[in-house]
């Protein structure tokens, strides 16, 4: 299953709710959620520890827009819009944590 998050991890509880509810699969961070995948942010450890259970992806155009294209934390996979579509089509279902 694919879980899409678009909220900043330090501004809302969306990432927490997703990580504690979802049982596994792919996580795609888009829009303000890309901050979760940047080096040195306070949610980094949380996301890191979830990596055993989930494969974490981040949408590159959103990361670059925010000036953080060179700060992606290790273990995260960078995807473009084509990769976004692939993730959606490769998963049987999808939850958007808005």
């Amino acid at each position: 299953m694919l879980h899409i998050i678009n909220q900043s991890p330090l501004n809302t509880t969306t990432l927490d709710t997703c990580l504690s509810t979802a049982t596994g699969g792919d996580i795609l961070l888009i829009e303000d959620a890309v901050y979760a995948a940047t080096k040195g942010n306070a949610a980094e450890a949380k996301l890191k520890s979830a990596m055993g259970k989930f494969k974490v992806h981040v949408l590159t155009p959103d990361l670059e827009a925010r000036g953080l294209g060179d700060r992606m934390m290790d273990g995260v996979s960078a995807v473009d819009y084509g990769g976004f579509v692939e993730l959606v089509s490769n998963n049987k279902n999808c939850q958007s944590w808005l």
């Binding site: 827009a65 925010r66 000036g67």
Partner: peptide, 14 residues
């Protein structure tokens, strides 16, 4: 999150 507004190197073409 307001501090992110001032981050250098924003590239919004994408």
């Amino acid at each position: 999150d307001g501090v992110y507004q001032l981050k250098k190197g924003q590239q919004t073409k994408g």
